[in-house]
Design a protein around this nucleic acid. Sequence first.
DNA 1: GCCAGGTCCTAATAGGTATTAGGTTTTCCG
DNA 2: CGGAAAACCTAATACCTATTAGGACCTGGC
Lengths: 349, 349
Amino acid sequence: MSRGPVRRPTQADIARLAGVSQATVSLVLNERDSDIGISSTTRERVLAAMREWGYVANASARALAGGQNKIIGVYTFEPVFPTTSVDFYFPFLLGMEQAAAELGYDLLMFTSVGGERQVFRDGSTRLSLADGALLLGRDPNIEEIERLRDTGYPFVYVGHREVAGAPVSYVAADYAGATRQLTERLFELGHRRVAYARIGDGGAQPSQDREKGFRRAMPAGEARRLSGPVWTLESTEDVAGLLAEIRHGGVTAVVAEQVLLAEELLACAQRDGVSVPDDLSIVVLGDSTGARRTDTPWTGLVVPREQMGRQATHLLVRLLEAPEPVARRDNVACPLVPGATVAPPRREQ
Amino acid sequence: MSRGPVRRPTQADIARLAGVSQATVSLVLNERDSDIGISSTTRERVLAAMREWGYVANASARALAGGQNKIIGVYTFEPVFPTTSVDFYFPFLLGMEQAAAELGYDLLMFTSVGGERQVFRDGSTRLSLADGALLLGRDPNIEEIERLRDTGYPFVYVGHREVAGAPVSYVAADYAGATRQLTERLFELGHRRVAYARIGDGGAQPSQDREKGFRRAMPAGEARRLSGPVWTLESTEDVAGLLAEIRHGGVTAVVAEQVLLAEELLACAQRDGVSVPDDLSIVVLGDSTGARRTDTPWTGLVVPREQMGRQATHLLVRLLEAPEPVARRDNVACPLVPGATVAPPRREQ
DNA sequence: GCCAGGTCCTAATAGGTATTAGGTTTTCCG
DNA sequence: CGGAAAACCTAATACCTATTAGGACCTGGC
């Protein structure tokens, strides 16, 4: 019964025990033995020694020497723990863990205090310990991403991100496609005037993708108006005004970017005696993340977060194991939810 | 606009730029400069060079050279991703991330495929990459823990664990205390015959702790019966029988170990026309993890998972920064939930 | 016996940092 | 001015692994 930390055996120890050189141990360990030429008897001797002494590679040394560490870094540009963000982040992490486990990688989660998350902290980023990284966040620091890209460090962004200069690899939800389908369905049902509404500035990529899908679904005549029937609100307080405008303009269906907006719209409609979906159809382009959970069976889409996490992990591993010079982009389809907030427009309006 | 990976500056680069040696850079970086004696002008020159060139320490090299890695490993004995376990694990992780961020540590989550999780995998655990580890899981492999302890590797178990030989450090929920309080309250309300029930074998430590708390709360006469009014059921199918026995034995309050059990009990009670809490008070010693979420306002306790995660992280860091020869154990109080499933017993029964 | 061509292995090195013994310069005091 | 002490810094080394050029040995053919 030994006391105190026991020094773990190194390759040199194993080599001594097996009567070979450290290099041979490394070759056997990394299964380069057939390429280089290590006899099977030697290999067995080495493996036996490793088993007997419980040899475990030193990850730091391995990383330093340029070997793979079987570690994927996960970097979120916002802390995960504010409980409001939990629903948002956790499905991603779930998918990542699942895929990483399948692929034999561990997950290194980079933390940082406060709101200001920086990849390049003052003198101690540990990004290098991971073979590559998955980046995640609603509000990424574009400069940091560009800088990271320029280092040649392999990473995949989860979510659609466009940066200046060379493109970066990402896995994004196909908001444009799903929005287009949802909007087209409204027209198929007979709606003629359909509006798009959001809260916030709409500058974010996911926001833009959705709007693009919406515009693509518009009939030719409507689409040509550059501004389009797109409302961008400042806050929920403007929703009542939006509803009035909608009704006044003969709009019979609204595509709402956020659940929060849709819920406010529904509340206003109920106050005004407007029936959803009979008088007004509502489609929602987000899920209930961050909103208080209600039971409204919204017609809309599901953000396939778990799937995105999985796919991003697979993509990253592919890049790690066979580096490609060019960035890769993957899209993940958003499942549509039938819901009950869409109906054909009233006959006589 | 350079192409290709840009080599990150090293201490040697900074040293050259600042006109000092690499050792000096290291000393400045680690703030050992006052101990050793580095003049403030030199320090400033080095710091300026580091800032200008965006020097970032190489974590692998740092770890290899014996420095701390500022990484905490998180090892779960079951995969996190099966969705049934999500509610169980995530709060722990949340607390850990929060604490780790505050303390300046990153989190390395060890994954593995399939059900069989082993710390000592066939020659490639990376536990060593982390400075220490947090262990987590309902069904830990005791042998693995003992083996890990014997290596001298610092770790803290989240949850109460007793192993043979030297004790291990852990942070546990104070189930015994909370159970005792809840049970005592039943007696204070006037209950005379109180039973304890669980599903499963009750061999697990959390299960034993709860039972111990229950027994401590029993009035002297009751406590002396060794077997005690403790029922251990095989499955939910036995609950109907339990209810019959309870009623037959004049028991007016039940302390149920699991929500699942409590819900089944409630269902049976309703079928039999037994009113909860008027005819039967029920206390639950777990939260709704894993159970289908119902709205029953159970009287019981909250498992302070987030707090446990936080505290375990703090304890581990304390151990890392000032190693102690002896194991540390922390208890975290379980908040009690008043709920609405407990009432005084009926007067004439 | 000698050479060509394999086969199997090793020596040497790089990778970036932390640490320590000791070297050089400066300061202080008599 | 000489010598001791203090202040400041550096050379050297350890940490452990991956990689590669090349060395030693063997085999087979003439």
